[in-house]
Amino acid sequence: MIADVLKEATGRMERAVESAKDDFATVRTGRANPQLFERLTIDYYGSPTPLQQLASMQNPEARTIVITPYDKSALKAIEDAIREMPNLGANPTNDGNLVRVTMPELTQERRKEYVKLVRAKGEDAKVHVRGIRRKTKDELDALQGEVGEDDIARGEKELDALTKTYVDKIDEALKHKEAELLEV
């Protein structure tokens, strides 16, 4: 029973770390990265559609992304959606066949803003992991009559070790992203 509860908590914590890494990937660095547009949805014939379903993306140069839509009628909608993206600062150009997005150079001030943003996202992810820990501890406490107190105490120690492991993974991803952001 305790092993099942801990296994479920491990899976949820793993997903929280992956979600944090995905969040970090949406914050742009000095280079262009197609992951910046992963969460972008386009209003395509009245329904919100993810950009990956509407177009292919290439990264021909360090600061340029070329987006080629499968349906040329979506060009304007893609261009408008990219222009409206917060925290991007890029001005897409449309040549009738594709959309070219050239990322501007990041200033030192802007880099520091992005570091603050990434730290906030990292802290949110750690809070989420701790929330999973709290919920799992409540589940372990609910097993009080079914299993012995020693087993529950052992389970709580394992849970604390799991929590520390996943918080450390978030810190490691955060440190990597900060270094990437501050790299000139």
Rank of each mutant, 00 (worst) to 15 (best):
N94P: 02
P104C: 01
L117E: 13
E172L: 12
S73M: 08
Y70V: 01
V147R: 13
L143C: 08
D168R: 05
D124I: 12
I82H: 10
R119I: 14
V115L: 04
F24G: 00
I42G: 09
V99A: 05
E146R: 15
D22L: 01
R100Y: 03
Q35L: 15
E158F: 06
K164E: 11
T107R: 02
K177D: 09
G145W: 09
I2E: 11
Q52A: 12
T10E: 11
R83H: 07
P104F: 06
Q144C: 08
E149W: 09
L159Q: 03
A153Y: 14
T49V: 14
N97F: 04
V115S: 05
D43S: 12
E113M: 07
E139F: 10
D23I: 00
L54A: 05
Y45D: 13
P48C: 08
D124Q: 15
N87L: 07
Q108A: 15
K135E: 15
T163D: 07
M1F: 15
E113C: 06
L140R: 03
V147E: 08
A179V: 08
M13L: 05
V5K: 12
D160P: 03
I65L: 11
R63E: 00
V27A: 04
K112G: 10
R119P: 13
K21D: 08
A62Y: 00
R12I: 00
A3H: 13
K157P: 07
K121Y: 12
I170R: 08
K175Y: 09
L36I: 06
D43Y: 04
Y166H: 13
E38K: 10
V101F: 08
A125V: 12
K112C: 08
T29R: 03
A125H: 13
G30N: 06
P104V: 02
V5S: 15
L40Y: 06
L36R: 01
D43N: 15
L88M: 13
E105F: 10
P50G: 04
A9W: 06
L117K: 11
D22G: 07
Q52T: 10
P48A: 08
K175H: 11
E18P: 04
V99C: 02
K116R: 13
R83P: 02
R83T: 12
R110I: 14
A81W: 03
T107Y: 04
F37Q: 01
R134L: 11
E146S: 15
D138E: 15
D80C: 02
D138N: 13
V17F: 05
A179M: 09
I170Y: 09
K72F: 07
G148S: 14
R134M: 09
R130D: 12
I78Q: 03
T64W: 00
V127E: 10
Q35K: 11
G148M: 07
H176S: 13
H176L: 13
T49E: 05
L98F: 06
E18V: 00
L106Q: 01
H128P: 10
D22F: 00
M1L: 13
Q53L: 10
L54T: 05
R15I: 02
P69Y: 01
M57G: 07
E149P: 07
K169H: 10
L75C: 03
V66A: 00
L88W: 05
V129Q: 06
D22K: 10
S19W: 06
D80Q: 14
S47W: 01
T136H: 08
L159D: 07
